[in-house]
Design a protein around this nucleic acid. Sequence first.
DNA 1: CCAAATTCAATTGTGCCCAATTAAATTATA
DNA 2: TATAATTTAATTGGGCACAATTGAATTTGG
Lengths: 156, 156
Amino acid sequence: MMSRTADDDMTKGTGSYEQLKLGNQLCFPLYAVSREIIKKYRPILRKIDLTYTQYLVMMVLWEEDTVNVKKLGEMLFLDSGTLSPVLKSLETKGLVSRSRSDEDERILLISLTDRGCALREKAKDIPFEISKCVELSPEETYELGTILRKLLKQTR
Amino acid sequence: MMSRTADDDMTKGTGSYEQLKLGNQLCFPLYAVSREIIKKYRPILRKIDLTYTQYLVMMVLWEEDTVNVKKLGEMLFLDSGTLSPVLKSLETKGLVSRSRSDEDERILLISLTDRGCALREKAKDIPFEISKCVELSPEETYELGTILRKLLKQTR
DNA sequence: CCAAATTCAATTGTGCCCAATTAAATTATA
DNA sequence: TATAATTTAATTGGGCACAATTGAATTTGG
């Protein structure tokens, strides 16, 4: 008996566990792809001595020039427990400066230094280098971006 | 056509940095969504005293019953540096057992204990609970899964 | 058979991530 | 205006992730 595979019986036995599989849950490939792509960034980012998280912070600063930690956290979906040490590390490298707001001393303002600003030029081609590692059609790229942004919005 | 903003000018000034923005790179939302969804798992998994990584390992074992560390790493895209402590932790909880293969003593076999097997019943409804937090249409779910699996395949 | 290469897991060190707590500063309220 | 509530970062501790190294066991080539 029991020649059916465990995979396709939803009526009894192991069938009730059908959804409890790696292949039937979106979160696992999401998680794995995310890590795999960050892995592709690593050798490229090492050339400018940045980790992926540090690179995310720098991208914000290249657009905003000055932001506080709270705003940065909201933009990157990261909290102070993650950002505090990352920002100290960027300060140690001389890429950002940290200073308290005059109006509200609880607020820590993060600004680009000249060196941090100059790094933008060196980072310029990174998105192109990464895009070479990821083979998706323009349609797939657009579709993926749309769905991910939709999911991200749901977490707010 | 002359009403374009600084954001889409590829011809001068900051234009050459256009791709170097959070909004124009897929990796960032991928990374953020992955973390946000894992965050949704946390309170649910806490009820059965598992972390997300431990849950992934258990899902493999509920299907395979016995696997070695190398195979597990290939399935989950994780290396021994991550898995070794996770597996020890699962052993401490009494959910898995670790034993060397008789034929090749380099190989560590991970097996479900009775308690680990029984946990499956408690975990049964987790995929359903998570799906309630994620609002995607069936089409979007299918599309996302297809694209993620394609990307995952490219890393091999 | 034996040395070299390979395979597999464990260890070590660095860097996130996050929950929970703390501490400092500001704002709102009785 | 005291004081209670809120806001904002920093700190702490636990658990991954991963690169690099190590060491043990097996396989392979001469």
